[in-house]
Amino acid sequence: MTSNTDPAKPPLLFVMNAASGHNDATATRAAIEEILAREQRTYRIHVIEDPRHIGETARKAVEEAKARGEVVVAVGGDGTINAVANAVLGSGCTLGVLPQGTFNYFGRAHHISEDIEEALHALLNAQPQPVQAGLLNGRIFLVNASVGLYPQLLEDREAFKQQYGRSRLVALWSGLRTLLHHHRQLRITLEEGGQARNLRTPTLVIGNNPLQMEQVGIPLAEDIKGGQLAAIAVKPVGVLGMLWLVIRGAVGKLGDAENVINFSFTRLVVKPSSLYRSRRVKAAIDGETIWIDAPLKFRVSPVPLLLLKPVLQPAAQGETEENAQ
């Protein structure tokens, strides 16, 4: 750790998930230490050794950072960033991120490089900007939250990663196997703006990431940028129909499919059918599965995250957006 007293260069607390992403944690830590020592920045590194306690560890780290006037920097994939952001939201601390996961939708949407050295240099010159956060029963989500098929896809993908390693090819292979074996349909009621409608669907996804919407072809990216969330549901289809929708999503044409429902909102209540014995629902938040009490209340957080975002020139910003797509 180095030290400085420049108020324009606040101290940094790195919260790093040793088990996250495809990069070696030792190499990542070495890169952080080398660059910050060279730049004479005050910093600390907190390594999360046990991912099972990531939420509790993140909360304690943010409490320390608030007392010390530190910027909290999450180092890991979307799940790690979510855990740290959940602790940062409303704390008064500023958040920085060094994306190290498989898909890194949050970092890519905000033009933060996946290259550790490039991301670090950008972080040291970044400016804090407010960023929208979604909430599911009070829990933050930055990329998406979902129920039904999507959480099962994530659980199966994690099992495949443990066996075959972390890569986008492994994630795709796992997803195809899940689609072939998952046949359950959700029966839910959607309540928005005083109106209710019943829906039968294999999955409901609530998105808060414009880049992800653009990539699968859902025309709600601008709505998210304008302060709303995006809802995507699939009408009941067979296995072949679901596989066809996956292919359409892969080529950015999901929004044109007649079996896909999508709309934007700021508040949405989702109630499971009374046929369900349990009032607890399996959900996924930014790539991590959880059990949560129904009804499910989705909304835009009234308090934004304060995120350190790279300072981009207009020409460079256009190039970055093109590369992200």
Rank of each mutant, 00 (worst) to 15 (best):
E222L: 10
P272L: 14
V251H: 05
K253H: 13
A83Y: 00
T178L: 09
G90H: 07
I218P: 03
T178I: 08
V97G: 04
G249R: 01
Y105Q: 01
P10M: 07
F106T: 03
Q195D: 10
I81K: 07
V72M: 06
I54D: 01
V84R: 05
V246P: 02
E158K: 06
P302M: 00
L204N: 01
E117Y: 01
S274T: 14
D223H: 14
P7V: 10
Q152P: 00
T320A: 13
C93D: 05
P210C: 02
P202S: 08
V170C: 06
T94H: 03
H181D: 10
E56V: 11
M213F: 14
I285D: 01
S278G: 01
L268A: 07
L306E: 15
A58V: 12
G175C: 03
A109S: 14
E319D: 04
R157M: 15
V237A: 13
E70P: 11
P11L: 07
V260Q: 08
P202Q: 05
R68W: 06
L275N: 12
D286H: 10
Q129M: 08
A294N: 10
G55L: 11
V88W: 00
L240A: 14
S278Q: 09
A8H: 13
Q313M: 08
M16L: 15
S301A: 15
V311Q: 13
N104G: 02
L307G: 07
V269M: 12
P272E: 09
T102F: 03
A18I: 12
E288C: 04
E64H: 14
L305V: 06
R166G: 02
V84A: 07
V143P: 00
S91W: 04
G193M: 09
G255L: 06
A315I: 08
R41G: 05
L243M: 15
K235P: 03
F14W: 03
R68K: 15
L204A: 11
L135A: 03
N137F: 02
L36W: 11
N17R: 01
E192H: 07
A25T: 08
E258T: 13
Q325K: 13
Q127A: 11
R166L: 14
M242K: 14
A85C: 07
D256M: 05
R168G: 01
H22G: 09
G193V: 09
R187C: 04
R277C: 08
L275K: 13
K235R: 15
P219L: 09
A283T: 09
T102Q: 06
A233R: 02
